[in-house]
C-alpha cells in the first residue's frame, strides 16, 4: 500500500457576483488529479504558475477541503477526517512553504516557533521540549544559540532551515515542499537541497516536491508529474521524463529551460500565449487548444485519463499532444 494515494482530486471555487451574489462561474483549480507516493520517495510536481500545483499541496495536507476525490494517507481518507483526527494526522504529514520570511511568526523566537508543534500535540515537559528544539537546530545545521533569536536576524537560507526544522519536529513520514528554494540564491539553494536529501536518507521521508525550476525537480525527484491547467498531463520516472518526454507540453516546458552553457545556444520553439484561465477551461485537451492544434477537436469528449505507455510512464492520451 502506498503511503499516500490521491484519487480524482478536484478543488473548485465558485466565482460569485451580481446583486444576489449568485455563482457566475467555477474556477477549476484542480480538476481530477490522481497519483501515489511511496515511503521514502520524492514525487516532483511541475507546471507554470496557476496550474494548480500549490492547490494540490494544500489539499493533500488538508489545509483546504477538496470538492471531490480521495486523499488516502496510511489507509485513512483524510478528506473525511474531523478536527481531532486531523491533529493526530498532522504528526505524520508536514509542509515547508516557499517564503520563509512570511511563514515564520516575526514576534516569536526560533525556540518558540520550533516548540509550537510539541505544544499543540501536548508532548513532553518544558525541559524536554527545550532539548528537542536544540536537537532540531543541530539537525538542520543551525547553532544552538539560535533558539533565543528572532526570524529577522537570519538570512533567507537560514530561515528556510528553520522552516524545515519545524516540519521535522514531529518526525513526520511525509513533507510537502511547496517551492522550498525558489526564494533563495543559487549557492544557498544548493545547501538547502543537500539538507533535504540528507534528511530523506536518514529518516526515510517522503517528499511531495513542488517547484517551477525543472532542473531542481530533476535533481530531487524519483518520479515527476507535469501539471497543466488543473490536470496531470504526464507522470513518469525522472530519467524517462527528461530523456523521453511524450506530451507536447512537457516537451515545451523542458525546451524553455535556459542551459548554462553558451556553446549550446539554440533556436527554440517558443510557446505562444499564457496559461489560459481555469475559469471555464476549454473542453478536451487544454494544451492542444492553446496551441490551436488541428487535431484538438478530436480530444473533445474523449476519455483523457492517463494511459501507461511504458512501465511507470503515464501520459494523457490526447491525439493533439501525443503522437
Amino acid at each position: 500500500m502506498s503511503l499516500l494515494s490521491v484519487q480524482g482530486l478536484k478543488v473548485h471555487y465558485p466565482v460569485r457576483g451580481g446583486v444576489f451574489h449568485t455563482t457566475k462561474a467555477v474556477v477549476k483549480a484542480v480538476d481530477g488529479v490522481s497519483f501515489t507516493l511511496e515511503e521514502g520517495e520524492t514525487l516532483g510536481l511541475v507546471g507554470e504558475s496557476g496550474c494548480g500545483k500549490s492547490t494540490v499541496a494544500k489539499a493533500v495536507v488538508r489545509l483546504l477541503k477538496p470538492t471531490a476525490g480521495q486523499v488516502v494517507f496510511e489507509g485513512h481518507d483524510i478528506t473525511k477526517s474531523g478536527a481531532g483526527a486531523l491533529r493526530t494526522l498532522r504528526r505524520e504529514m508536514q509542509m515547508v512553504f516557499q517564503d520563509p520570511a512570511e511563514s515564520l511568526n516575526p514576534r516569536h523566537t526560533i525556540g518558540q516557533i520550533l516548540e509550537e508543534p510539541f505544544v499543540i500535540q501536548k508532548l513532553g515537559t518544558r525541559v524536554e521540549r527545550g532539548e528537542w528544539v536544540a536537537e532540531l537546530l543541530g539537525r538542520v545545521g543551525l547553532p544552538e544559540g539560535a533558539a533565543n533569536r528572532y526570524p529577522f536576524e537570519f538570512s533567507g537560507g537560514q530561515r528556510q532551515r528553520i522552516g524545515i526544522a519545524r516540519a521535522l519536529a514531529l518526525r513526520p513520514k511525509m513533507i510537502v515542499c511547496d517551492e522550498p528554494v525558489s526564494a533563495l540564491d543559487v549557492s544557498v539553494q544548493a545547501q538547502v537541497l543537500n539538507l533535504l536529501l540528507e534528511l530523506q536518507r536518514d529518516s526515510k521521508l517522503a517528499y511531495l516536491f513542488i517547484a517551477h525550476d525543472l532542473s531542481v525537480v530533476q535533481h530531487m525527484s524519483d518520479r515527476v508529474a507535469v501539471m497543466y491547467l488543473g490536470k496531470i498531463v504526464e507522470l513518469a520516472p525522472v530519467a524517462a521524463l527528461y530523456r523521453d518526454p511524450r506530451h507536447a507540453y512537457t516537451k515545451a516546458l523542458l525546451d524553455a529551460i535556459p542551459v548554462p552553457d553558451p556553446a549550446k545556444r539554440r533556436e527554440r520553439k517558443l510557446l505562444t500565449g499564457d496559461v489560459p484561465s481555469p475559469i471555464n477551461p476549454p473542453e478536451g485537451c487544454a494544451f492542444g487548444h492553446r496551441m490551436k492544434h488541428p487535431r484538438w477537436k478530436e480530444s473533445v469528449g474523449m476519455d483523457l485519463t492517463l494511459k501507461e505507455v511504458a512501465p511507470g510512464h503515464w501520459v494523457q492520451p490526447c491525439p493533439c499532444c501525443v503522437g
Binding site: 520524492t42 543559487v186 549557492s187 539553494q189 544548493a190 545547501q191 537541497l193 543537500n194 536529501l197 540528507e198 532542473s215 531542481v216 530533476q218 535533481h219 530531487m220 525527484s221 524519483d222 525522472v238 530519467a239 527528461y242 548554462p260
Partner: peptide, 21 residues
C-alpha cells in the same frame, strides 16, 4: 562555485550538490 552549485542535467540525481559554504 556559482557554476558548480547549479543542478545540472548530467549531475547524478539525489546526490549532494557542491556548495559555497
Amino acid at each position: 562555485g556559482l557554476m558548480a552549485c547549479l543542478p545540472k542535467m548530467d549531475h547524478p540525481p539525489k546526490t549532494p550538490l557542491p556548495v559555497i559554504p
